[in-house]
C-alpha cells in the first residue's frame, strides 16, 4: 500500500518558521511508523531528523505526535492507524530543536526535582534489603516508566505552564514514595504538595491514554494526593 506522510519540518539554521512536507512511501500494513520515517530518511530526504534508539518500545527515544496522539513511532503499526494519511509532529510543550527532535531538558529538570532515586540512610544490611511480593507489587505499575515524555507532553496543564512538574515526574516519585525500603517519601511529598505539584493535575486523563507502557498515571497521581492528605503509604 502507498502511505502519504505529512511531516513537521523545522531547521533553525535555515527556516524562519516550521512547515510541513509530504512524502509518499510504499509500506506494508504491518510496518511501524518508525520504518516509514527510516524509509523517508534513507531513500528520499536524508535531512529528516528524529530520535530513535532501540526501536522496540523500551528506550522511549521516539515519542512523537502521530495523527494527533503522542505515541512511540516504533510501537505503532500502519494498520493500527486505520488510514493511509499519517501526520507526524514533534511532542508539544517542549521546544523543538529540529524537525521531530525536542529539547528534553525541561522534562528531565522536573524529573530530577522529585528525587527519583533510592533514599535510605540505614546502614546497608549484609545481603539485600528485603521486601515482600505484596510490598513490591504496591509500586509495580510505576516502575514501568521509560521516560519517553509522551504523558507530560500530552498534558494541557503542562502545555500552559511548564513549571508544573508533570505526570512523568509524579509517576517516578510514586515509584519511590510507595517503596517500603525507601525513606524519602516525606521529602518528595513536600515537593509535590507545592503550587506546581500534584494539585495542578485536573484529571484530564490525556497522560494515561498517551502512555505507551499503559501505566495508570492518573491513578498514581491520585494515590500521591491521598498520601499528601493522609500520610499513609499503604
Amino acid at each position: 500500500m502507498q502511505v502519504t506522510l505529512k511531516i513537521f519540518r523545522y531547521n533553525p539554521e535555515t527556516d524562519k518558521k516550521p512547515h510541513y512536507e509530504t512524502y509518499k512511501v510504499e509500506a506494508e500494513p504491518t510496518d511501524r511508523v518508525l520504518d516509514l520515517l527510516e524509509k523517508v530518511k534513507g531513500e528520499q530526504d536524508g535531512t529528516l531528523t528524529f530520535r530513535r534508539s532501540c526501536a522496540h518500545g523500551v528506550c522511549g527515544s521516539d515519542a512523537m505526535r502521530i495523527n494527533g496522539m503522542n505515541r512511540l513511532a516504533c510501537k505503532v503499526l500502519v494498520k493500527d492507524l486505520g488510514t493511509d494519511h499519517i501526520t507526524i509532529e514533534p511532542l508539544l510543550g517542549l521546544p523543538t530543536v529540529k524537525d521531530l527532535v525536542v529539547d528534553m531538558e525541561p522534562f528531565f529538570e522536573h524529573y530530577r526535582s522529585v528525587k527519583p532515586f533510592f533514599i535510605n540512610n540505614d546502614p546497608p544490611p549484609q545481603k539485600e534489603r528485603l521486601q515482600s511480593p505484596e510490598e513490591r507489587a504496591r509500586f509495580d505499575d510505576t516502575t514501568k516508566c521509560i521516560l519517553c515524555a509522551a504523558c507530560t507532553t500530552s498534558c494541557p496543564s503542562f502545555w500552559l505552564d511548564g513549571q508544573y512538574v508533570g505526570p512523568a515526574a509524579i509517576v517516578n516519585a510514586h515509584r519511590f514514595i510507595f517503596d517500603s525500603r525507601d525513606q524519602g517519601a516525606e521529602e518528595r511529598l513536600k515537593i509535590l504538595a507545592d503550587q506546581f505539584g500534584v494539585f495542578r493535575c485536573h484529571t484530564i486523563f490525556n497522560c494515561t491514554l498517551a502512555c505507551p507502557r499503559e501505566i495508570q498515571i492518573t491513578k498514581a497521581i491520585g494515590e500521591v494526593r491521598k498520601a499528601i492528605a493522609t500520610g499513609r503509604l499503604d
Partner: peptide
Amino acid sequence: MKPRKVPTPGWNFEYLMWLF
C-alpha cells in the same frame, strides 16, 4: 504488609483549595 506512615506536608493553600 505493615502500614507505613509519614508526616503529611501539612495544610497548604493549594491543597486546601483542591479539597474545597
